[in-house]
Design a protein around this nucleic acid. Structure first.
Lengths: 282, 282
DNA sequence: ACCCAAAGGAAATATTCATTCCAAATAAAC
DNA sequence: GTTTATTTGGAATGAATATTTCCTTTGGGT
């Protein structure tokens, strides 16, 4: 009989990883293949049958069983349960919100809980303060645009990146303006009247973004703005602006609510755009 | 024979949900029990056997099969694959996400409220699942680094931008790796042993980031990873990883909880770094 | 109260799948 | 170069599990 590890095998996935790293060298060739595959595609191990997996790895089914046994498991199925267990993000079907609420009430605040609480509050406020209709109007503007130009600097830049990423995935043409090394005037010249500027800016409002908005409004180019207050210089009467205010924790402001709003805006734009495209084709 | 739906059954979980909401009333009592359970515990359906599930629901095995067939599936196994697919985070094409969005639109939840709710839940779960100690350990690694190299692509890129922005503001030296047009090997060569790689990656995990982590670990360079599951290939035993799972709304995953965690990480790193500097000067 | 159709339960059946076994191949030892 | 141990592939086996069948129960309509 092949040498089989007699000690108890890891019952959780996080312990299995280091075990494999330690013993990888001593394993037979095929078993090494399985080990690499298992670490790179644990979901496949968790969900598929021996036949299907061994096929993907490029080994025979028996190799899978040998692999499991060489670690100390009773068989493949035994090992698979370990992979499955680490997949469940289970435990809180019931009193989940209650629980975390109670905990944050009495106990002393950890760094994490402080920030999660601030984020949760920001998001709750977002839902109250932003009208669905405003979101829809902004989305319609973006959906009708020939091209969406996105601008924003500093703390707004991650939002720019995210909006660009999502819009492109949804089939809405868009370009990031912030990265380019042009003067504001040059940038503004790029925008035709059927384009739309999507400007993101938080206080302290950077001069660049503000300037860009000014020029666009002068040129009658549509502007959709995402900002943190109606007092913001980029929130003007003749543009479409959405307001999101992040709660701050000892001077730090997050982006949780902002990202949520950004996603809403992108998805809604994608939806409206799809509707428009359908009408055109009909 | 019982009446069986003849049209093609939903092949993705997000379509199954609204289907059940619509037809719930017309189902026999036992099948309703199954429906409720399935919507509340999709992981159980995905991972367990008919016998085990029916036991948990409190019905007989045949009820499970009948349930699947009444929806239009060939049998339980057929339905189970749909639940399994929803577990591996394999995304569906964006066009289809918009479709399923439209179909579930009627359910009077506004777009905004759907996404804020998902964000709030993600954040609540973040607080429960991430241990303060893990956050601290990761921060210590970053704080001790001579230089922090940040890597991440696709949906992770806004997080990269944000972390870089915040870390720099806090006086922690850091560089973004993703933008550079070097081979992975070249990038890895940049990292000295007293540097730290901060890798952000969500499923489907991009090969680039994974490769970078692999190389760094081989070179004994410290790695701090931010990912969406312990099964992620970049969550390894010898790195310091933080896990954050975003709730999805009809196929769309936000970044609200992720951004919150990123901010925590950055702030905590800044704090630890300040402490270290103080000791040096004293 | 009776009948009929729909629903539910329990056990038989069929299928799928993990596991085992053995022979062939490969690598190691002498 | 021969022998011995280890590894490997493929088919046979047997266990686990989904599915079907049949019979009982329930509930609504007349």
């Amino acid at each position: 009989m092949t040498k089989v590890i007699q000690v108890a095998p890891p019952r959780v996935f996080s312990e299995l990883k280091p075990w494999l790293q330690d013993h990888y060298q001593d394993l037979p060739k095929r078993l090494q293949s399985v080990a690499v595959f298992a670490m790179h595609n644990p979901e496949v191990i968790a969900l598929n049958t021996v036949a299907s997996i061994s096929d993907q790895v490029g080994v025979t089914p028996s190799a899978m069983v040998r692999f499991a046994k060489s670690i100390g498991y009773q068989g493949f199925s035994d090992m698979q349960t370990v992979f499955q267990e680490s997949m469940r993000h289970m435990p809180q079907p019931y009193a989940e919100r209650l629980n975390s609420m109670q905990r944050s009430a009495g106990r002393e605040q950890t760094v994490l809980s402080q920030f999660t609480q601030a984020a949760a509050e920001s998001i709750a406020r977002l839902e109250q303060n932003v009208a669905e209709s405003a979101l829809l109007r902004a989305s319609e503007q973006l959906a009708q645009a020939r091209m969406v130009y996105i601008a924003g600097q500093g703390r707004a830049e991650p939002v720019v990146t995210y909006l660009h990423y999502t819009l492109v995935k949804l089939g809405v043409q868009s370009v990031i303006l912030s990265g380019m090394h042009h003067s504001m005037a040059d940038k503004a010249r790029m925008l035709k009247t059927d384009d739309v500027l999507l400007a993101i800016s938080f206080s302290p409002y950077t001069a660049n973004t503000r300037e860009l908005v000014d020029i666009c409004l002068l040129n009658k180019t549509k502007v959709v703005a995402l900002t943190d207050s109606t007092l913001s210089p980029i929130a003007r009467a003749d543009d479409y602006h959405l307001e999101v205010l992040e709660e701050e924790v000892s001077g730090f402001r997050g982006l949780s609510a902002t990202m949520c709003l950004a996603l809403c805006l992108a998805v809604e734009t994608g939806r409206v755009r799809a509707e428009l495209d359908e009408k055109l084709n009909a």
